[in-house]
């Protein structure tokens, strides 16, 4: 690897890390504002103009709070829990292609930290590791509510990962690759995968809600039944990490959905734009477009949160095992038949 490339990679890692943290930070603010607008309220407006310093104030509060580790908690694991949660949330962004390659001088730089050929599998691996943070934290708290919340999180994630994986398989049958960069390249201009995989996308987004523990699948932190769920015993920045990890997960899964189904950094008429403005500005517009898609998805996450009430636990399991998995398998079969027929007809 060349030196210039290496330096660029390191800079990109720092930038992606910073962006995902800032987006997560302002997602907390956006969530409160959006919630307020949906409920005909104003929302936080005291810290700075329109309350835009609210996340900083919240973060400062989290840092300065007293650190409490319950006497009966398993000390080491109690700290490992939130650390693992935030770690797995952050490393998911490594394989996301943020834009087309940018050329500076004679070098071309990929706007992707690493283009591994099993990108989709990597995302799945990281997402499934995320449940360990919750599980360890809930178990180490030595509290019944925490443990119940952790068990719920674990079984929910395992159940929904199956249908998530099955819904992706139908997509992979069409793309023929696991590399996120190639998948993004294939969706050039307006040839987005959502056109070919509408059912698969619906299944995927439902599973994404479950994987990120967002309403209507937020049973692991169901306040009415479990006090606070797996983070009942947590305080100060360790609690902050858990809450933060949820928002980073939301950001990453929005990015994955945008890349897999909604064309990633592709936008209609991108060739015309590239021809008239040059390749680099077109690539930067692509990055902006990708972020616009991501923010729309984050908004959708919040929109759904303030619309739909929480599932009951048996309903959650029914939905996962009896509805989503059969649908996902049907989707695979339909995709297979459809693509075979289209190939035979000569498309």
């Amino acid at each position: 690897m060349e030196t210039a490339d290496l330096i660029f990679r390191i800079v990109l890692i720092v930038i992606v890390f910073a962006i995902s943290l800032v987006v997560a930070m302002y997602s907390t603010y956006a969530e409160r504002k959006v919630a307020a607008f949906f409920q005909d309220r104003i929302g936080p407006n005291r810290a700075g103009p329109w309350g835009i310093l609210q996340p900083l104030a919240d973060g400062g509060k989290m840092f300065l709070k007293e650190e409490i580790i319950p006497t009966n908690a398993t000390g080491f694991l109690f700290i490992v829990g939130p650390s693992l949660a935030i770690l797995t949330a952050c490393i998911g962004s490594a394989v996301i292609p943020w834009g087309k390659a940018i050329s500076i001088g004679s070098h071309t730089f990929d706007l992707q930290v690493t283009d591994i050929n099993v990108g989709v599998l990597y995302i799945f691996g990281v997402v499934s590791l995320g449940v360990y943070g919750v599980m360890i934290g809930g178990w180490a708290s030595n509290n019944k509510y925490s443990l119940l919340g952790a068990i719920r999180a674990a079984s929910q994630n395992i159940s929904y990962e199956i249908s998530m994986g099955l819904s992706i398989i139908a997509l992979l049958m069409l793309t023929g690759t696991l590399s996120l960069k190639e998948i993004a390249e294939q969706q050039h201009s307006w040839h987005w995968n959502i056109i070919r995989q509408p059912l698969g996308f619906i299944l995927f987004i439902v599973c994404a809600f479950a994987e990120t523990n967002r309403t209507p699948f937020d049973l692991p932190e169901c306040e009415t039944e479990l006090v606070g769920g797996y983070h009942t015993e947590y305080s100060s920045m360790k609690l902050g990490f858990y809450l933060f990890a949820e928002y980073i997960n939301m950001f990453i899964s929005s990015a994955v959905m945008a890349t897999l189904y909604w064309g990633g950094y592709n936008y209609p008429f991108m060739d015309d734009v590239a021809a008239s403005l040059g390749a680099n500005p077109a690539a930067i517009i692509g990055v902006v477009v990708l972020f616009a898609k991501i923010f729309l998805f984050i908004f959708f996450f919040m929109w759904v949160r303030w619309t739909i009430p929480r599932f009951r636990y048996d309903q959650l399991m029914d939905l996962g095992w009896k509805i989503l998995i059969p649908l996902a398998i049907a989707n695979i079969v339909l995709t297979g038949i459809g693509s075979t027929l289209l190939t035979h007809l000569g498309y």
């Binding site: 949906f38 005909d40 619309t307």
Partner: peptide
Amino acid sequence: LATTMKHFFKKPVT
């Protein structure tokens, strides 16, 4: 979702 979106554009009562 349509119902909540209607409220999104309503004037806050606060």
